[in-house]
């Protein structure tokens, strides 16, 4: 090798990229596999996609989709997220009693399978307590002991009626979800730099306000992605509502039609397509949520007019 003389000054670079023959081979194999799959869809009459689409739009299926699956997911996640954030805050409290409550809650609801929890709510609780009175603790005992006519009961819940409703199922799934969300929220809160809470405190904010205004909005950046995961998992877990039993739910309805009409596989395909569609919509929603809570982070200036000055260091 000789170092060329400086008389011949090199110009712009026009170099060939590194060859990747493996990629082309892999692409060819995948194209062939997809072609085989499509051909089997077309040539195997048992797939019967037209029947699957018919099942998808039947009234009981749509009703199950909207009530049990969509409303169920939204309701359970609302309870789960609010409950989870509260339990996470309790867990990080300086009060040992609150920390203990939070720990026991998470231990219990994370420990039992949702199927078992829902079955218990559906049949077990109503057997133990057929009705629940809301009033002064031990009010009824005191009233009978003192011979009073007022028994300090303000409101009575008929558990046997309540426990088989969709609301009971939503509450059950939500309570279980709160235990998982608590861990996610805790990780999010702990991810926020301690200096943020200190700066808020130094400005005279109370701890609660600092949590709401400063720490939680920043924690959301860490909380949102795994919460999207949880929400998509929850869509699928609404199929467990049949343990309550609640039958206005997507999978129960589609498989019921499948069993009745012997179109077993088309019915499963109908459910699968619906689940995939919901999941896709949720991923779009998650993208926008992540963008919203990513404000001020990342390198892209949100406002073009205030582009980062060249050479400026960020923290």
């Amino acid at each position: 090798m000789t170092t060329p003389s400086t008389d011949d000054r090199p110009g712009l670079i026009d170099a060939r990229p590194v060859p990747h023959p493996g990629r082309w081979v892999a692409l060819a194999i995948i194209v062939i596999l997809i072609a085989m799959m499509i051909s089997s869809f077309i040539t195997n009459p048992r797939w019967d996609f037209s029947k699957a689409f018919e099942i998808m739009v039947q009234t009981p299926v749509l009703e199950g989709l909207v009530k049990g699956t969509i409303v169920g997911t939204i309701g359970a996640m609302v309870i789960g997220i609010i409950g989870g954030v509260i339990i996470a805050i309790l867990r990080l409290s300086t009060n040992p009693v609150l920390r203990g409550v939070s720990f026991v809650y998470t231990w219990f609801f994370r420990g039992i399978p949702r199927l078992v929890l829902l079955a218990m709510i559906g049949s077990g609780i109503g057997f133990l307590y057929s009705k629940v009175d809301f009033g002064v603790p031990f009010g009824q005992q005191f009233a009978s002991w003192l011979g009073l006519s007022q028994d300090f009961t303000f409101f009575t819940l008929n558990v046997n009626q309540f426990s088989s409703t969709l609301l009971a199922g939503i509450v059950g799934l939500g309570l279980s979800e709160a235990a998982y969300m608590a861990e996610i929220a805790r990780a999010g809160i702990l991810s926020v730099d301690k200096g943020q809470a200190e700066a808020a405190a130094a400005l005279g904010m109370s701890r609660g306000r600092a949590m709401r205004r400063i720490v939680l909005p920043q924690a959301m950046r860490v909380i949102v992605p795994p919460t999207g995961n949880e929400a998509i998992a929850m869509v699928k877990d609404t199929s467990l509502l049949s343990a309550i039993p609640i039958i206005t739910e997507l999978f129960y309805q589609t498989s019921a039609i499948g069993n009745r009409t012997l179109l077993i596989m088309p019915a499963f395909v109908a459910a699968t397509v619906w689940y995939l569609l919901i999941g896709s919509v949720m991923m779009v929603g998650q993208y926008f949520l992540e963008k919203r809570f990513g404000r001020g982070f990342g390198t892209k200036p949100t406002n073009k007019r205030f582009a980062r000055p060249a050479g400026a260091g960020g923290a």
């Binding site: 130094a202 904010m205 109370s206 982070f297």
Partner: peptide, 26 residues
């Protein structure tokens, strides 16, 4: 109490080594 402590801090401004600006706000 926490509230009284917060009230005392209101009268004292503090500037930190690492700035500690709130990154999610302009």
């Amino acid at each position: 109490s926490d509230k009284q402590v917060a009230a005392q801090r209101r009268e004292i401004g503090m500037v930190f080594q690492r700035f500690n600006l709130f990154p999610h706000m302009t």
